[in-house]
């Protein structure tokens, strides 16, 4: 399907181009809703659609007023602070716990591996509404509901499966002889981990960490149940915005969030390229 062979029949030719057009339309369906938000967030009028001025590229029809709105609105600033605090703490916890567990899971002597793996992956499988309901009762009972530590613990639990999966996958291609070599040269296990293992599995750890971060940064169901007004995060604030007082400020926030996802995507892409380059260089 890469290119048409010279002997292609007219029917094949038509199908070849029809297929490309079809795929183009599907890709357009995927990306258009994300792209359409960006220009609308610069709308000078409080509308969710393109004004005539915007279509005529009249500079007066564009403005930064909704971005100014975010900066001047204490609620948004507060919720951004919360989102980053929760996201970063949960990511650090999830990456540490998840990497340790992945190291244990990939050892040949790990007993009951499949069962343990199943339990560790479960936060990713259980529908969020059930997780949220369970945590709501439990965290209320132990006094962690409506506190940031409560939300951090909840998000850590939700983020760990991604770290476990990515780091386990990275460790699958890891040469354990390197650990033996390091040990035979007299390095204690911690030194071996930090000097030999970690640099090699770092890409897996980073992509796991990014997944954990975006999971927390984007999570709203658990926050709906666990957070009070003070602990609102960006998604919670957006939820309120969509349900209660819909305003184009949300589009400005959405544009900022799209920038965050572009950054994450670029980081992952760089990691992937690095991995491919390293694999290409190594004789194995």
């Amino acid at each position: 399907m890469t290119e048409l062979p010279p002997y292609a029949s007219p029917l094949e030719r038509i199908w070849f181009y029809a297929f490309r057009v079809l795929c183009g339309l599907i890709l357009f369906f995927l990306i258009m809703p994300i792209l359409v938000i960006v220009p609308l967030s610069f709308n000078a009028e409080p509308y969710f659609t393109f004004t005539e001025g915007m279509l005529a590229f009249d500079p007066a029809a564009y403005s930064l007023r909704w971005y100014r709105d975010i900066i001047e609105n204490e609620q948004w600033i507060h919720s951004m602070k919360n989102s980053f605090i929760v996201g970063i703490c949960a990511t650090i916890l999830a990456t540490t716990l998840g990497t340790l567990a992945a190291l244990g899971l990939t050892r040949t002597h790990m007993p009951a591996r499949n069962l343990v793996m199943g339990l560790l992956i479960s936060p990713m499988i259980v529908p969020l509404i059930i997780t949220a309901a369970g945590m709501y009762f439990f965290y209320s009972d132990i006094g962690l509901a409506q506190t940031l530590p409560g939300i951090i613990l909840a998000h850590t639990a939700l983020g760990t499966p991604f770290v476990v999966i990515t780091v386990t996958a990275t460790l699958a291609g890891f040469d354990t002889n390197l650990i033996r070599a390091s040990a035979s040269l007299g390095a204690p296990p911690t030194t071996t981990f930090f000097k030999v293992t970690m640099p090699l599995i770092l890409p897996g750890m980073i992509s796991g960490a990014l997944f954990a971060f975006i999971t927390s940064f984007d999570e709203v169901v658990v926050v709906l149940f666990l957070a009070g007004f003070e602990e609102r995060t960006i998604p919670r604030q957006m939820w309120a915005g969509i349900r209660e007082q819909i305003s184009p400020t949300i589009l400005a926030v959405a544009t900022l969030l799209i920038c965050v996802s572009v950054l994450l995507l670029l980081t992952l892409e760089l990691l992937r390229r690095r991995g491919e380059r390293l694999r290409g260089l190594s004789p194995g």
């Binding site: 809703p33 938000i37 940064f217 709203v220 957006m238 969509i242 969030l257």
Partner: peptide
């Protein structure tokens, strides 16, 4: 973000 896509 899920909410961004829902908003769009």
């Amino acid at each position: 973000s899920l909410l961004v896509r829902t908003t769009s």
